[in-house]
Write a protein that binds this DNA or RNA. Structure first.
Lengths: 117, 117
DNA sequence: TCTCTTTATCGTAATATCACGATCATGAAC
DNA sequence: GTTCATGATCGTGATATTACGATAAAGAGA
């Protein structure tokens, strides 16, 4: 990373970027995946959904819709975001869809948080 | 939470919302704070900033600007988001601003992640 | 004081997100 | 097959986010 207008057109700062004091092995795809999970969680309603699924594993979309103050279509969108980020998994049960946390990805998220900070 | 159009106008679902299998003590202000921290982290550039500050504690804004492919004003905005979410703290060093992780809040975030899932 | 460096803030355009109702697709029950 | 329940998707408007350049504020040094 190093191409913008400001510093490219000016002389280097008196004090250049200091040496790193340590390293952090979160890069590329892992980083994208982590950021995407954070982004998905960074919405009050989606967090509420995740919380609900944590305490009500295997619930169907309708249960979640009943629990939230938003329309069915909006809820479905939020579920899609959580699904695509890897937080939850949906399985078809007849005409309904049953949702659970994606335990493996949740575990991965926790491990990254532990690793990072 | 229970006021939308769909389920309010229809008869209750055949299977009501099942009983919770467990509880989760993240509510109100704590929840808002956590979601806000997730949201702040859910942007690739802001995550990059946080990573940079982790490996380069005490850096000034200019160092971060040099490290990112975006304009100084945009970087400053992202720093403000991270500050307001509690991820970082800035201290004035003459005309510059030196940034560090807010260790206490970082610790709090980790503990919540550990508690939640 | 005047200038330079540094960074925050302002104004704004482009894009993304969020919310809704309406529609479509699918499986179950009759 | 027809109907109903369920939930995903489409089209849309409203709002929020992200990016930029320009400007302002404030300390350091001549």
């Amino acid at each position: 990373m190093a191409n913008k207008t400001r510093s490219a057109a000016k002389k280097p700062a008196l004090t250049g970027i200091p040496e790193p004091c340590c390293t952090l092995d979160v890069e590329g795809e892992r980083q994208e995946r982590f950021v995407s999970m954070c982004k998905a969680l960074g919405n009050p309603l989606r967090f509420e959904i995740l919380k609900f699924l944590l305490t009500h594993p295997g619930c169907i979309t309708g249960n979640i819709v009943d629990h939230l103050p938003i329309a069915q279509s909006t809820t479905s969108q939020h579920l899609a975001v959580l699904r695509e980020a890897g937080w939850i998994q949906g399985t078809f049960e007849g005409p309904a869809t049953s949702y659970c946390l994606d335990d493996e990805n949740v575990k991965w998220f926790k491990s990254i948080v532990g690793e990072i900070f």
